[in-house]
Amino acid sequence: MKATPLVWTGRVLSALFVLFMLGASVAPKFFMPEIAREASRPIGVADENIPLIGVIELIGTLLYAWRRTALLGAVTMTALLGGAIATHMNAGSPLASHTLFGVWLGLVMWAGLWLRDADLRALLPLRRT
């Protein structure tokens, strides 16, 4: 079956989310630990928690990327992003650029999944007919 433009848009949004998470969030926690520590200290994240956060991000992102577990990955990542939002609120980070970044990222993630998954669109329609 040929994929529709709607599905391709969802795949692109999902790929952008996965690439961002792996490149800008997961990789620094494992391969650039000093940069990750410097970014995390001002918002109150202890140095010893950074690798664990990276593992949770990696697992959630990989679950999201695989079609059969994408919904579980999206729920996992939503929880993680909620924690990031709360952490930034508690630290007094700028609203639009830091605190709400988890919201913007979550919107891209869920939009990608909703567009690429017909079952999810049927479960959560934009409007009922």
Score class of each variant (00 low, 15 high):
Pro125Ala: 12
Ile85Asn: 00
Leu63Trp: 06
Phe20Leu: 15
Glu48Leu: 03
Val108Phe: 03
Ser97Leu: 08
Arg116Met: 07
Leu80Pro: 01
His98Lys: 15
Leu124Pro: 09
Leu16Ala: 12
Phe101Tyr: 12
Ile50Lys: 05
Gly23Ala: 08
Val75Asn: 13
Leu71Asn: 04
Thr76Gly: 12
Ala36Ile: 04
Ala86Tyr: 11
Met1Asn: 08
Trp114Leu: 07
Thr69Cys: 08
Arg37Leu: 10
Gly102His: 07
Met109Thr: 07
Ile43Met: 07
Gly92Ala: 12
Ala39Met: 11
Thr4Lys: 00
Ser25Pro: 03
Thr99Phe: 02
Trp8Arg: 10
Gly73Gln: 06
Gly60Phe: 00
Gly82Gln: 08
Arg11Pro: 00
Ile53Cys: 06
Met32Ala: 15
Ala24Asp: 08
Gly102Leu: 01
Ala111Thr: 14
Gly82Lys: 08
Ala84Leu: 01
Ile35Phe: 14
Ala74Lys: 06
Ile50Ser: 00
Trp114Gln: 07
Gly92Trp: 00
Glu34Cys: 08
Leu115Phe: 10
Val103Glu: 05
Met109Trp: 10
Ala86Asn: 12
Asn49Pro: 03
Asp117Leu: 10
Trp104Leu: 13
Thr69Arg: 11
Gly60Leu: 02
Met77Phe: 03
Val12Ser: 05
Pro125His: 12
Ala122Val: 11
Leu63Gly: 08
Gly23Arg: 09
Asp117Glu: 14
Met21Thr: 01
Arg121Asp: 08
Ala24Cys: 11
Trp8Met: 06
Ala36Tyr: 00
Val55Ala: 14
Thr76Ala: 15
Thr9Cys: 00
Val26Met: 04
Pro33His: 09
Ala84Gln: 06
Gly83Ser: 09
Ala96Ser: 14
Leu80Ser: 01
Glu38Tyr: 09
Pro28Trp: 00
His98Leu: 13
Leu71Ile: 12
Leu22Glu: 07
Arg67Leu: 03
Leu80Lys: 09
Leu123Thr: 15
Gly83Arg: 11
Pro125Gln: 13
Leu100Cys: 02
Leu80Glu: 02
Gly23Ile: 02
Ala96Arg: 14
Ala84Gly: 09
Ala24Leu: 10
Phe30Asn: 14
Ser93Gln: 14
Val18Asn: 00
Ile35Trp: 14
Gly106Ile: 01
Leu13Glu: 00
Gly23Asn: 05
Arg128Pro: 00
Arg116His: 11
Ala111Asn: 12
Val108Pro: 02
Leu81Pro: 02
Asp119Asn: 15
Ile50Ala: 04
Thr87Tyr: 03
Leu63Lys: 10
Thr4Tyr: 02
Glu48Gly: 04
Ala46Glu: 12
Gly92Val: 04
Pro94Gln: 13
His88Tyr: 04
Trp110Cys: 12
Ser25Trp: 04
Ala79Lys: 11
Phe20His: 13
Pro5Ile: 01
Thr129Pro: 13
Gly92Arg: 05
Ile56Arg: 03
Ser25His: 07
Leu124Asn: 13
Arg41Thr: 10
Phe30Gln: 14
Asp119Thr: 12
Ala24Arg: 11
Arg41Phe: 07
Ser93Glu: 14
Gly112Ala: 06
Arg121Ala: 03
Leu19Ser: 05
Ile56Ser: 02
Gly82Thr: 10
Thr9Ser: 09
Val108Glu: 09
Ala15Asp: 04
Ala96Thr: 10
Glu48Asn: 13
Leu13Val: 03
Gly83Cys: 10
Arg67Pro: 04
Ser97Asn: 09
Lys29Thr: 06
Pro5Asn: 09
Asp47Met: 10
Gly60Asn: 05
Tyr64Leu: 09
Leu63Arg: 13
Leu113Glu: 10
Leu113Gln: 13
Leu81Ala: 04
Pro42Leu: 05
Leu13Pro: 00
